[in-house]
Design a protein around this nucleic acid. Structure first.
Lengths: 100, 100
DNA sequence: TCCTTATTTTAGATGCAGCTAAATTAAGAT
DNA sequence: ATCTTAATTTAGCTGCATCTAAAATAAGGA
């Protein structure tokens, strides 16, 4: 899958944020969403195949963390996304308001 | 629409490349694809609403060009995409050469 | 060995981004 | 006025990315 497509999915973008500077077990990641573990696991697979996530196994658990270097120019996009997300959502809401 | 979603569509990425450092009429852009003008027009609308394209009207024609500054960190992603496309074409050409 | 915990994999369902076709707008030429 | 060219808008269709549910895998304890 194309790197850009990999990070374009909102759920995957959020997963990257969660494991940006700490390791998290798959279950702890899944707990952050109100979708099935299965769905989250499938996203983790996509991110891992793209090389954006590194996996460490310990017992029955699997821990993930972001590989920032692997993102290349997308790294700045990901970091900017979080910085501006609140602001952007506010603007989108205002546009909605105007079109009423 | 979220900026990342806007450039994540391959067709829109290609459109941006076409008008990266020249102005092009909507029809000339559409001619580059084997989809309907309508489809291309809809992509132009998305890009324009995101602020990534500027429009200039002249007679019945509408000319578009990329607004590089508006892309922010996405600019590097687009340029990287373009660069790797050229590389891919070059490699394909070399393979052609070898097989002669 | 069987159970539990943690997670993935498979198979099938669903929503929506992107498409087509047809109607519409807009400007200029005849 | 009508026709042509250039492009957009609208309405409806389709494929695929993402989702759920259920079965499978894998490691560790009782």
């Amino acid at each position: 899958m194309e790197p850009l497509q990999v990070i374009a999915a909102p759920r995957r973008m959020r997963i990257l944020e969660l494991v940006w500077d700490r390791e998290l077990a798959a279950g702890d990641i899944a707990a952050e969403f109100d979708v099935s573990w299965s769905a989250v696991s499938q996203h983790l697979t996509v991110l891992k195949k793209a090389g954006f996530l590194v996996e460490r196994r310990e017992g029955t658990s699997r821990f993930y963390r972001a590989d920032k270097e692997a993102l290349g120019p997308l790294r700045a996009v990901v970091e900017d996304h979080w910085r501006t997300s609140l602001l952007r959502i506010k603007h989108l809401a205002e546009e909605e308001e105007c079109s009423k």
